[in-house]
């Protein structure tokens, strides 16, 4: 209820201007919203924004009110004399210079406090995750856990997470509105986000800095899990890939994979060592493919493997044009990599 109240409060100027729109904005689930923070960082930002927004709303009402009042009150009346030619008023000028100064102090003080609070170095014992931006997918490395995965970030609830982020090609921007806010991912620089997620769940995010053809398709997910769920996930990721039983379609698929073009770009631990595309060792443990753009199922994988660029413009992965049998086999193998 409290949440809804805040959202409605924010919609107020909208209601003043366009009630219709505010109704539209207050409906529906918004998985990528910035307005329902689920971490200490998200809450600090939201708290600051709410304060600034209140000041902005107050100024809006006063100044637009004065403007509208002046327009109605001083509209020309027939036969009225030429108005008195006032040229200015020093006291008034000083007043409306100082008034904004005071309001801005009220905005600047919490702003600067929040800047330093949210950019403090990560405390010892934080879970470190390296984020590497690629055109157009995300690579995550957990150096202390020995896990490498893509697009879907898994983190434990209530633990401080320290993201160290850089890019492998152009500038991207890592954005998970509900828990991690946003920070650019710049080649040659390492940027940091430190946060502690406080609510279990799946959160959506995506690249926010224009990074070329498929910028719109560089999406991501974050799974905030209980300690035990997270540990189970880590344990599974550390396993070698599932080895298909002989004489199954999956085994054929593994063979096709190992002797095909796939190995040039993709790693499957013990099978291939390509470094250009995402690590596929546990592909089937993920819920999405292709920069968290499509669901991770056989239908989408088949289309993806054979026609990546038409599903994701500019994709480095080319049309594989595999015969149907090989395609089915490879996808069956990939789908077995839990």
């Amino acid at each position: 209820m409290h949440r809804h109240y805040r959202l409605i409060q924010r919609c107020l100027p909208g209601l003043l201007l366009l009630g219709l729109l505010a109704v539209g904005a207050c409906a529906g689930p918004f998985p990528q919203t910035t307005l329902h923070p689920k971490s200490d960082l998200g809450f600090a930002i939201d708290h600051l924004f709410t304060g600034i927004f209140a000041w902005a709303t107050a100024v809006f009402v006063v100044v637009e009110g004065l403007l509208v009042y002046a327009l109605i009150r001083f509209r020309a009346k027939p036969g009225a004399p030429v108005p008195h030619p006032t040229h200015g008023h020093t006291a008034l000028e000083i007043t409306w210079t100082l008034a904004p100064v005071l309001i801005l102090v009220m905005v600047a003080v919490p702003t600067i406090r929040t800047i330093f609070a949210t950019q403090a170095p990560a405390p010892a014992g934080s879970l470190k995750v390296e984020v590497i931006g690629h055109q157009w997918w995300w690579e995550y490395r957990y150096p202390d856990l020995g896990v490498v995965t893509a697009n879907e970030l898994h983190i434990p609830v209530g633990k401080t997470i320290a993201l160290d982020m850089t890019s492998n090609d152009v500038i991207h921007s890592f954005w998970i509105p509900a828990i991690a806010a946003k920070r650019d991912v710049v080649p040659g620089h390492v940027n940091h986000i430190v946060f502690k997620a406080d609510t279990l769940g799946e959160y959506m995010g995506q690249c926010a800095e224009f990074c070329g053809d498929s910028h719109a398709n560089m999406r991501l997910r974050a799974f905030v899990e209980t300690d035990s769920a997270f540990n189970a996930w880590v344990a599974n990721q550390k396993q070698p890939p599932v080895d298909p039983k002989p004489n199954t379609i999956q085994a054929t698929g593994k063979d096709d994979f190992a002797h095909g073009a796939c190995i040039a770009c993709h790693t499957i631990q013990g099978v291939s060592a390509g470094m250009i595309g995402p690590n596929l060792t546990h592909l089937a443990s993920r819920t999405t493919i292709a920069g968290a753009t499509f669901p991770d199922d056989s239908i989408d994988l088949i289309q993806w493997v054979n026609h990546a660029p038409s599903r994701k413009p500019g994709a480095v992965m080319m049309d594989m044009n595999l015969p149907q049998a090989n395609l089915q086999a490879i996808v069956a193998y990939l789908m077995s990599l839990k």
Binding site: T34, I45, D46, L48, V107, T111, T114, I115, P177, A208
Partner: peptide
């Protein structure tokens, strides 16, 4: 103009 708030707003 407030950098932390802008972290949610920029590029949106």
């Amino acid at each position: 103009a407030s950098p932390p708030a802008d972290l949610q707003q920029t590029d949106t």
